[in-house]
Simulated assay, not measured.
Amino acid sequence: MTLTDEQQAIKDEFVRVRGTWGEPWERMLELDPAFVRAYLDFSAVPWRRSPGALSPKVRELLYIAVDAAATHLYTPGVRQHVAAALDAGATPQEIMEVLELTSTLGIHAANIGVPLLVEVLTEEGLRDGPAPLDERQEQLKAEFTKTRGYWHTFWDEILELDPDLFEAYVAFSSVPWHTGTLEPKVKELVYCAFDASATHLYVPGLKLHLRNALGHGASVAEILEMFEIASVVGIHAATTAAPILAELAEQRS
């Protein structure tokens, strides 16, 4: 369709500020230009701030973490933000490092599940307290603390009850900390971004990684900008469904 002057102005501003456009935005612009304008203003908060707290490269890395997370898996966004990250100067190795960090999300099944198991075992009279750690478990705890720079009580029961899982997870999750080049502050912001995302909302991990990020020198402004980036994930309801709506509506017209 031919765009009205209002629609064209919104599209031009969107491309200028966000640096992207595509069929979902075109369909939304046809259906409800006011919504596209409002989303542009919402998503552009970190991009219109000058200077921004985070660099454009780091912003794009955080978008990748949110979109690629196992709880979201929004492929069009991954593609868009990988391209934008490369354009902003990120290396393939840095982007791969973000994917490695984000791939640790699955351990939250155990972080949530094992303490609940311990709670149930205690209530059923099948457990009367934690067992002391053996030499191997103490070594695993020390290795994790040295590599990651912290320890949290939500690891205690996993280490006690399933040291094989814990050992394998330590090796898996530590790869980007041994071989990666992103500064620790950025690594922790990546963890924060996917923990804070509406598709995950893992509060214990978010609080932990906020503390770690501050400890590695992140500013409040940088953390707030991370939240601004993670907060726009809801738009994928519209970017996924608006083209379907436009297609089906056109078939019936």
Rank of each mutant, 00 (worst) to 15 (best):
A109R: 03
V220G: 10
W21V: 08
I107C: 06
R148N: 10
L29H: 00
T239C: 04
D162R: 13
L214G: 05
A218I: 08
I107W: 02
L121G: 04
S43D: 08
I223C: 10
L73N: 08
V36R: 02
T153K: 12
R148V: 05
L29Q: 01
T147S: 11
D156L: 03
T2A: 12
L210V: 15
R148A: 03
G217Q: 12
I95G: 01
P176Q: 01
S55V: 05
T102Q: 05
A38H: 11
D67K: 00
T71Y: 00
K141M: 10
A238H: 07
G205K: 09
K141N: 09
G113T: 09
K146C: 06
W155R: 03
A84C: 02
A70R: 00
I95Y: 01
Y191H: 14
A168N: 13
V78S: 02
A84L: 07
R148K: 14
R79C: 02
G215I: 03
P204I: 07
T145P: 02
A198W: 09
V190A: 08
T4M: 04
R136F: 08
A193E: 10
R148W: 09
R18F: 05
L206V: 09
L210F: 11
L245W: 03
A193V: 12
A53Y: 09
L210E: 02
S43A: 13
E222T: 12
V78P: 05
Y202F: 15
P204Q: 10
E13Q: 15
H200C: 11
T75P: 00
K11W: 03
D128A: 13
E157F: 01
E119Y: 01
E143P: 08
P115N: 03
K185H: 07
E157P: 02
R18L: 15
Q80A: 14
E97F: 02
P46G: 08
A53K: 10
D134P: 10
Y150P: 01
V82G: 02
A246M: 02
P243F: 01
L61R: 06
L116H: 12
K185I: 06
V98R: 07
L161M: 13
